[in-house]
Design a protein around this nucleic acid. Structure first.
Lengths: 225, 225
DNA sequence: CTGTCATTCAATAATTCTATTAAATGACGA
DNA sequence: TCGTCATTTAATAGAATTATTGAATGACAG
């Protein structure tokens, strides 16, 4: 173990990267950073964790090359190193979805009960939008929405679903999306809208996947009037 | 931390998978299993580790859904759960190659010194082979070769490079490949052949990548005469 | 220069992971 | 049934990871 040939040295590096993905909190951090750059305290607030803890996890991620830090005044903004980080996350997620029975159990027990319908694909959504057949809502918080959203989407944060639905046309189908394929918010939104009499479905993925697919992103804010 | 919403429960599952990739020895095991099914003792022998240690790592991999076990008489054969495991490994490797300076250092310090030339791509190799311009050698051990190799390749294990080169035509270019893109054996083979006056290059990837690309695989043995 | 605020660092205890050793299981053949 | 062999399990000590706490750093405003 003391003598390390170059192959083992390489594998140690690969293991460092894999280990960085190997903690639920760090995966949540990655998902948040996939929406855009964030300061340490912003992340800490979103995740309900002490700042120091988030800071240490961020540095673990930085050592593994998954995120980068940029100082701006008093704040340090972290962001994902590049898209390969997200695709590695997706690969790991794929293995888990395929081979871990527990994932199946969680999804069946919680998500499927709330969203029995087939989610909308990206291509399908584009044609529905082109034909003006659906209302697309982005249920992420306004700050994440402002940094980039699907063109034509309106921002309806989860807490405002009920009040928004009153002013919305019940006969028009709604498509909701949020941070990623397993982001709970879009599930919750669809469940809430259906219980209010709307016809609602989820987009299969979230914002980062949309951007990664090379599809257009709108930056201007559009309120949830 | 005690109350776990379904999202956190999911992330814990994803983290289990990532953690399984997070140890150099387990990565080596995965690379070996990518060549084909192996018994515990066979792996232990290849990796120079005690059987019990390998057995425990294999069970960690099994719990994470990365490998599966099949009993056959006294032996238990382990194999990769499916190709998604290899592609997740490749993704992690990609992140490391892109963002860890240490990987660069190792590669420059060791590999590049031994293989300054551009490796041969898969498409390029196929056309070279079609035109009969190169000799393709598979430098893995005979048992791995027997379980599947690139059509037309001959098996020249690393230890037999010197004796083989005596009977080979020095003017004919040689292409070598082994287990994967970072497998040391093909680097060593190319270095040895060059020092013996041959013109030699590496194939950019190894056997698992060849198979994963959907290219044909030959099963019959072909000795290194 | 001083105070404030975001972030990092240092120290700690609790937990988890790892390699090793030795003993237990399970399957085969005599 | 008994012995052999491959594998698994149990037990252990040492190492690494984690969350928490409180103190240190670095940048800005006054």
């Amino acid at each position: 173990m003391s003598i390390r040939n170059p192959k083992q040295a390489l594998y140690e590096q690969f293991a460092i990267v894999a280990k960085a993905f190997g903690h639920p909190l760090r995966l949540e951090i990655i998902e948040h950073l996939a929406q855009g750059a964030r300061s340490v305290e912003a992340l800490a607030a979103k995740l309900g964790q002490p700042t120091a803890n988030i800071s240490q996890h961020l540095q673990a991620l930085r050592r593994a090359g998954l995120v980068m830090a940029e100082r701006e005044g008093k704040f340090v903004y972290y962001s994902l190193a590049d898209d390969s980080v997200l695709s590695a996350f997706a690969s790991v997620r794929g293995v888990a979805e395929r081979h871990l029975a527990e994932v199946d159990r969680i999804v069946r027990g919680y998500f499927d009960a709330r969203d029995r319908m087939r989610p909308v694909g990206r291509d399908e959504l584009q044609s529905l939008m082109r034909d003006g057949l659906v209302t697309l809502i982005d249920v992420r918080p306004p700050d994440e929405f402002a940094l980039g959203h699907v063109p034509g989407a309106i921002n309806v944060p989860l807490g405002e679903i009920n009040s928004w639905s009153e002013s919305a046309d019940t006969s028009r189908e709604v498509v909701a999306y949020c941070r990623g394929p397993w982001c709970v918010m879009s599930f919750e939104a669809v469940a809430a809208l259906r219980s209010l009499g709307h016809s609602a479905r989820r987009l299969e993925d979230g914002m980062p996947e949309w951007k990664a697919a090379g599809l257009p992103v709108e930056m201007a804010a559009r309120s949830c009037g």
